[in-house]
């Protein structure tokens, strides 16, 4: 665990809280893509299936392989799952009437199908758990596309939405730094599937980062995209 990894995780955690706070405070989820949020629940569900493995070790009192890192990961995984499901739940129940569904027009199969095919071809092990893990990595890289499309459609984002987007994009950018650090300091550490997907994910946020910093510098309340 290095400073980049822990900062990335905390930034990721912050992104959920920013979004939940925003939705609760404004009683609205306008400008937030339901499709992107739905994809994040799928990403975490497919990736964190190993929670059952940890749970199995705990209920059989097999603590030999449970380290501090396992406990940290388990705690964070449960938080990420709970937060993402809660966001989807909020957007489909009390905030449904404020949802931007009419403009949330991205076709999810356009990312789901390629990610599934890629996960079946390019994986480290041809096992169900490993393929689902790989699928989640590919899907996370592109899951923000409906949100970006909605942002372009709308032409602007309010302050909290752009902080949320910055936190989500920033977390993966910090993971890139973490991977460089781990590659330099840990023998045999190389996970090219995560590296390539992480790079693609960060690159997708590139334009957004640029406008975010321009906005922060100029002190505007809302982020407006050039038309």
């Amino acid at each position: 665990m290095n400073i980049f990894r822990i900062s990335a995780d905390l930034l990721h955690l912050a992104s959920f809280f920013i979004l939940i706070f925003k939705m609760k405070a404004t009683k609205s989820c306008k400008g937030i893509s339901f499709k992107t949020q739905l994809m994040y629940t799928l990403v975490f569900t497919c990736r964190y299936l190993d929670l059952f493995h940890v749970l199995g070790m705990m209920i059989t009192f097999n603590f030999a392989h449970i380290t501090g890192l396992t406990l940290y990961n388990t705690f964070m995984k449960i938080l990420f799952l709970a937060a993402s499901y809660y966001i989807v739940y909020l957007m489909r129940t009390e905030l449904k009437s404020t949802s931007d569904d009419a403009r949330d027009t991205f076709v999810l199969w356009h990312i789901l199908a390629p990610c599934a095919v890629l996960a079946l071809i390019f994986n480290a092990q041809f096992t169900i758990l490993e393929i689902l893990w790989t699928f989640s990595i590919y899907l996370e890289a592109v899951a923000v596309m409906p949100q970006l499309m909605l942002l372009i459609e709308t032409g602007e984002a309010d302050s909290l939405s752009s902080h949320y987007m910055f936190a989500v994009g920033g977390y993966r950018a910090l993971y890139l730094v973490n991977w460089v650090y781990r590659y330099a300091t840990e023998p045999y550490y190389s996970n090219w599937i995560a590296w390539i997907a992480g790079f693609v994910q960060t690159a997708l946020f590139g334009d957004f980062f640029y406008y975010y910093f321009v906005k922060i510098m100029s002190g505007d309340a809302a982020l407006k995209l050039p038309t």
Partner: peptide, 10 residues
């Protein structure tokens, strides 16, 4: 595809 890497990240 190289050596298997355990998933110790989030």
């Amino acid at each position: 595809t190289g050596d298997y890497v355990p998933h110790d990240e989030l």
